[in-house]
């Protein structure tokens, strides 16, 4: 079952969810690690190259995920969920999407601030759209960092909520994403 039903998520949605989740957590760690590499570290050039390449591919994956989401039935909320849980979960889901797109966009704006494109694994180049503001690389860099921090905070909340539903409420919330 590739597509979602009104009862549960299809395998495409599940796959997108978990693969993107894995990459986002990996990118968070990679991002924090790479900025502290010493100039003579053999990863000094490679790590940011991978970070930028994966970031651009994540952008494409997220765009596809959004299209897939709109093109599929939305699984109904589980009846045992309280209204505040439904509201909170939906809000968090929406903000997670916004944050991921925001992080990708601000990440893109850092190295492209001087008109250089981003080489995705030396496979193709995402062109720069040019300088949008003064000190773009600094502003985009700060926003990129804080959005990522906020995202990881929300991811933890999202994961804790899933575990709570599975362990305490013993409902199908987590299971239908597996």
């Amino acid at each position: 079952m590739l597509k979602n039903t009104t009862q549960t998520y299809g395998s495409v949605s599940k796959c997108l969810h978990w693969v993107i989740a894995l990459f986002i957590i990996g990118m968070f760690a990679l991002g924090l690690w790479m900025v502290d590499l010493s100039y003579y570290d053999s990863w000094y050039v490679k790590a940011p190259h991978y970070h930028k390449s994966i970031g651009m591919l994540l952008g494409a994956a997220m765009a596809f995920r959004l299209i897939w989401r709109w093109a599929n039935p939305k699984p109904k909320h589980i009846v045992s969920h309280k209204p505040w849980e439904v509201t909170l979960a939906s809000t968090v889901h929406g903000v997670l999407y916004l944050l991921v797109f925001g992080i990708i966009a601000t990440g893109y704006l850092i190295p492209t601030a001087d008109g250089r494109g981003i080489d995705v694994f030396n496979w193709f180049t995402v062109p720069a759209i040019g300088t949008l503001m003064e000190n773009q690389e600094d502003i985009a860099g700060d926003v990129h960092y804080w959005l990522a921090m906020f995202l990881i905070g929300l991811v933890i909340l999202h994961a804790l909520a899933a575990i709570k539903h599975h362990v305490l409420d013993k409902d199908a919330t987590l299971k239908r994403m597996l």
């Binding site: 850092i110 190295p111 001087d114 773009q136 690389e137």
Partner: peptide, 16 residues
């Protein structure tokens, strides 16, 4: 000092 310009935005960000 923030006006440092080495013709590479990423490097300038790092230098700042």
């Amino acid at each position: 000092t923030a006006s440092i310009d080495s013709n590479h935005a990423e490097r300038d960000k790092h230098l700042r």
